[in-house]
Amino acid sequence: MKYLLLLFILGMTSCSSQSKDCLKFKTGTFKYSDDDDWIITRTDSTQIEVNKKNERTLKSSIKWLSDCEFVITVVEDNKGSSNILDKKITVKILNTTSKSYHYEATDGIKKTKNILIKIQGK
């Protein structure tokens, strides 16, 4: 029993001590792990998402709240969808690898989780 408790404590300590390197994902070109249609190009203050399949382009401003959290505000949709304009989406980077990050995004109503893979940029 003592060993199980010790393993549990060691496991919890090692999980919480994992570091996140969020800054390397502040800029670059990305794709979703589960959808190759969308390509995302991000600077420190803007993000452009392009769907290669239907040629939809979303342009957003970015406000960084911390190294691992930012708010995206959609400012332009070339397909003219007014219900997405000015929508604010808060994104939290949950953990990182050398080339990807897991995130949680919410617009205040709906919450999603996914993985972005960095395909270009430092």
Rank of each mutant, 00 (worst) to 15 (best):
V71S: 04
E49V: 10
V71N: 06
F8W: 09
D34P: 00
K59S: 14
N83K: 09
W64D: 05
T97H: 09
F30K: 00
V71L: 06
M1D: 05
D36W: 01
R42M: 12
I72R: 14
T57V: 15
K20C: 13
R56A: 04
T57N: 04
Q47G: 06
K53G: 02
T96C: 09
T29C: 06
C22K: 00
S66V: 07
S17I: 10
S81C: 04
K53T: 11
I62S: 02
G28P: 00
K63G: 07
K26W: 07
L58W: 01
K111R: 13
D21K: 11
D67M: 09
Y103A: 00
I109L: 10
M1V: 07
R56C: 04
I93W: 01
K24E: 12
E76M: 10
D21S: 11
T41G: 04
N51V: 01
A105F: 08
D35A: 08
S14I: 14
T96A: 04
M12V: 15
T29E: 14
T106E: 04
Y101Q: 01
T46M: 14
C22Y: 01
D67A: 14
K111A: 05
S16R: 12
S82V: 11
D86I: 02
I40Y: 11
T27R: 06
K20E: 04
T112A: 09
R56F: 02
N83T: 09
E76P: 03
S82G: 00
N78H: 03
K118T: 04
S100K: 06
D21E: 13
T27M: 09
Y32F: 15
M12D: 10
S45P: 00
T112R: 13
T112D: 13
I62M: 02
M1S: 12
E76C: 07
L6T: 09
K2P: 01
I109A: 11
I93V: 14
L85R: 02
S81G: 10
R56H: 03
M1N: 07
M12G: 12
S98Y: 11
L10P: 03
L5S: 08
T73N: 11
K79P: 02
K88Q: 15
N95W: 12
G80C: 02
G121R: 06
T73M: 09
N78E: 03
G121Q: 06
K88C: 05
K26F: 05
K92E: 09
N54I: 09
K31T: 12
M12K: 11
I72K: 14
S100W: 04
T43C: 04
R56P: 01
E49S: 15
D86Q: 15
S17A: 12
I93E: 00
L7Y: 03
S45Q: 08
G11M: 03
T29S: 13
K113R: 14
S60L: 08
T97Y: 08
I72W: 08
E69T: 15
S81P: 00
S61V: 12
S82N: 07
K59A: 13
R42W: 01
N95K: 13
E69G: 07
C15N: 14
S16N: 12
T97R: 12
